[in-house]
């Protein structure tokens, strides 16, 4: 027996998709374009389109449809800006490095880190942030971006090297 896929035309299923996907997709587009307003507009437009196409997109295909459609919309209206990243609230108090002496100053280092991330090309930045902030596996990132895992590993390597080049001098060994 083949279990019939839930229909996206059912509002309940649509809502479920939206709640599962809206935040990660919006963040993904944000990491690319750096404008939260633009990212939200893009993703919302895609979800509105999805509702209209609900009969033609199956539930299991919806995720890749949304990522692809958002990506396409993004390509149409690129305006790369710097991403604004925050630190997790709880972090500042307990930075438990074995010997924090080698950091010139934690705050200064973090500002520099954010700058370094912003100086990455969009290709590396999105992979780096999806992996390090969104904690996505390479496999997941490969699905989202449509790249191979090997390409992700490569971009990740480039990103790390570039950040190290920029920040190395701030880290005393």
């Amino acid at each position: 027996m083949i279990k019939k896929e839930p229909s996206i035309c059912e509002e309940e299923n649509y809502n479920q998709l939206f709640r599962n996907l809206y935040e990660p997709v919006t963040k993904y587009i944000y990491y690319k374009c750096g404008s939260l307003q633009q990212a939200e507009d893009i993703v919302q437009n895609v979800f509105i389109k999805l509702w209209k196409l609900c009969a033609t997109v199956t539930f299991s295909k919806a995720k890749s449809y949304i990522y692809t459609a958002c990506n396409n919309l993004f390509l149409n209206e690129v305006a790369h800006q710097k991403v604004v990243l925050k630190h997790q609230q709880s972090v500042l108090e307990h930075t438990d490095y074995e010997s924090p002496d080698f950091l010139i100053e934690v705050d200064e280092f973090r500002v520099q880190l954010k700058n370094a991330i912003n100086s990455l090309s969009v290709k590396e930045r999105e992979v780096f942030l999806l992996s390090r902030i969104e904690k996505k596996t390479y496999k997941e990132i490969a699905e989202i971006t449509g790249l191979t895992v090997k390409a992700i590993e490569r971009r990740m390597s480039i990103a790390l090297k570039a950040i190290k080049e920029l920040l190395g001098k701030h880290i005393k060994i």
Binding site: Y31, K86, R132
Partner: peptide
């Protein structure tokens, strides 16, 4: 000697946070 630098970059990067996104508000808007 670069290992420690990469480790710090990696662990610090993981302490960063993306934007806050209000999914329910967006759903309502849609």
């Amino acid at each position: 000697k670069e290992f420690k630098q990469f480790t710090i970059i990696n662990s610090e990067a993981q302490l960063l946070e993306g934007p806050t996104i209000d999914t329910e508000a967006a759903l309502l808007k849609i």
